[in-house]
């Protein structure tokens, strides 16, 4: 288990290092995909940086509101550089809203922009899962399978590696599928459906899952909902019942082959 990575005399938390690498790698891939889709690659970086900034600020403010008595005596601590005092889930929702507002404001075609982000997002998710494997977070349930890893006194499913493998396989498939002529948004819906299906399957082997009443694993329930919604939307383009968005899509000659 490597919760920290030494860098000279200092250390960096593995989770934070993985997050930085994931954002950089995912956005770099998205920038290149934007270039292939007649979109401005700078928008990829702008939207990610904006979303990241809004996520952090909102996460801190929401944490302070949730723990108001803790800040009552010394509100200046709202500005403290303490990673522990963030409500990241709620902050991320705000970050996504900010990203959506940016896309609308800049009049970027949302579906095509989402397609450009799909392969990079899968790579980013794989990097985050590898970070969790190194730090020992999001660990697996006890098992006796030959590939189990020894962690916290038991041999466990390396669920983080399952997760990373599924995301990378999704990336490979998305890159292959991206060469075809597709309706805008299809690739993003495929990525959402693929990763959700993977989480429905893999989270069954997680050891520290958050659970709903009745013992249902929260992530599985959410992922199943996203999977069904993504398949329903995907069906509209795959079955050809929806008019292709040719008006908003560049001609096929604009699409350059992947490097």
């Amino acid at each position: 288990m490597y919760p920290v990575i030494p860098i000279g005399p200092a250390t960096i938390q593995t989770a934070i290092a993985a997050l930085i690498v994931a954002i950089w790698l995912g956005t770099t891939i998205a920038e290149r995909e934007c270039g292939r889709r007649a979109l401005n690659g700078d928008d990829a970086w702008s939207v990610v940086m904006l979303a990241a900034a809004v996520t952090v600020v909102a996460a801190r403010l929401i944490y302070a509101l949730q723990n108001f008595p803790a800040y009552e005596s010394d509100w200046i601590e709202i500005f403290a550089l303490t990673p522990g005092t963030l409500s990241l889930d709620a902050g991320l929702v705000c970050g996504l809203i900010a990203a959506y507002a940016y896309v609308q404001h800049r009049r970027v075609p949302l579906a095509r922009f989402a397609d450009a982000f799909a392969p990079g997002a899968l790579v980013a998710l794989a990097v985050l899962a590898l970070g969790q494997f190194l730090s020992g977070d999001a660990y697996g349930a006890p098992t006796k399978v030959p590939w189990a890893v020894n962690l916290y006194g038991e041999t466990r499913h390396p669920v983080q590696l399952y997760d990373a493998f599924a995301a990378l396989l999704g990336f490979v498939l998305a890159r292959r599928w991206a060469r075809r002529r597709l309706t805008d948004g299809t690739l993003a819906l495929f990525a959402a459906a693929w990763y959700s299906a993977a989480r429905v399957l893999i989270d069954a082997f997680r050891g520290n899952a958050a659970v709903l009443p009745g013992g249902y694993r929260t992530t599985q329930v959410i992922a199943l909902g996203v999977l069904i919604a993504a398949l329903w939307l995907l069906g509209k383009s795959v079955t050809g019942n929806e008019r292709p968005a040719t008006e908003s899509r560049p001609p096929s000659s604009v699409l350059r082959p992947p490097p």
Binding site: A197, V200, L201, D203, A204, A209, V211, G214, G215, Y216, R217, Q220, V221, L224, L227, I228, L231, W232, G235
Partner: peptide, 18 residues
């Protein structure tokens, strides 16, 4: 296909409850 995914997925979520 969607119905199969929904049924199999729901079954899997049910069977793998904590």
């Amino acid at each position: 296909l969607m119905a199969v995914v929904a049924i199999v997925g729901s079954g899997w979520v049910y069977l793998t409850r904590v």
